[in-house]
């Protein structure tokens, strides 16, 4: 979830469950679902995400201030996530390696990754991406403190993935210290930018 704080993930779960039951009970009907209105809303979302990125280029000044080392943080998050998701896929017979990697490459950005995956692959994998990335955000929101104590200040930033720049930023800052806020924003921003590119790329492997 981007652009809002903690309670956002709860609202998201509620609206999703509401939609799910409306769809399942047939109140809304296949006809509306068949028109795929979610695609049009996705396009609107992508457009507003783009505006946010374009209007916020000043944030890239962080790189200059922090030295090139900061670049390694999102790179480590990408490599670690893909490695971990790849290994996890070995235990899931129904999921191919590109599919497992694509779900992981949502980096917690569940709204965007799930709809992109639903569009390119199928709704089942889209749902897995939604739940999987939502869990990633919720884990970060609730466990950043213990994660930082056990694994160091960069660990909550890694766990947060793309959400480190907004949704989970307050908890990460509290867990890792305010000095790491810049690192979190930078890492989250790079991952957020990469989600719409990496996910389709991995699915086409």
């Amino acid at each position: 979830m981007k652009y809002s704080y903690g309670k956002g993930s709860l609202i998201v779960v509620c609206v999703f469950v509401l939609g799910f039951f409306l769809g399942k009970t047939g109140i809304v009907g296949d006809r509306i679902a068949g028109l795929h209105p979610e695609l049009w809303v996705l396009y609107v979302l992508l457009f507003t995400v783009g505006i946010g990125i374009g209007a916020n280029t000043g944030a890239f000044g962080v790189v200059r201030r922090m030295h090139a080392r900061i670049l390694l943080v999102p790179l480590a998050v990408i490599a670690g996530t893909l490695l971990g998701s790849g290994i996890a896929t070995l235990f899931l017979p129904g999921i191919t390696l590109p599919q497992g990697l694509a779900v992981g490459a949502g980096f917690g950005y569940y709204s965007l990754s799930s709809v992109i995956i639903s569009k390119i692959e199928d709704e089942t994998l889209g749902l897995i991406a939604l739940v999987s990335n939502l869990i990633r955000e919720i884990v970060t929101l609730f466990l950043s403190g213990p994660i930082a104590r056990l694994f160091g200040p960069l660990a909550p930033i890694a766990a947060g993935g793309a959400t480190a720049m907004d949704t989970s930023l307050p908890v990460i800052t509290r867990a890792s210290g305010s000095g790491y806020a810049v690192v979190a924003v930078f890492s989250g921003m790079v991952l957020t930018l990469l989600v719409p590119f990496i996910v389709p790329l991995l699915l086409n492997l």
């Binding site: 956002g8 939609g19 769809g23 009970t25 809304v28 946010g52 709204s111 709809v115």
Partner: peptide
């Protein structure tokens, strides 16, 4: 920019609601 940023969560809720409907009508899921 501020208005765009503020509408984003609502678009996400709308998106997830619609995704819920699509997923709910899908028997395999």
């Amino acid at each position: 920019i501020e208005i765009t940023g503020r509408t984003a969560p609502w678009i996400v809720y709308m998106l997830l609601f619609l995704l819920g409907i699509v997923v709910g009508t899908n028997e395999t899921v």
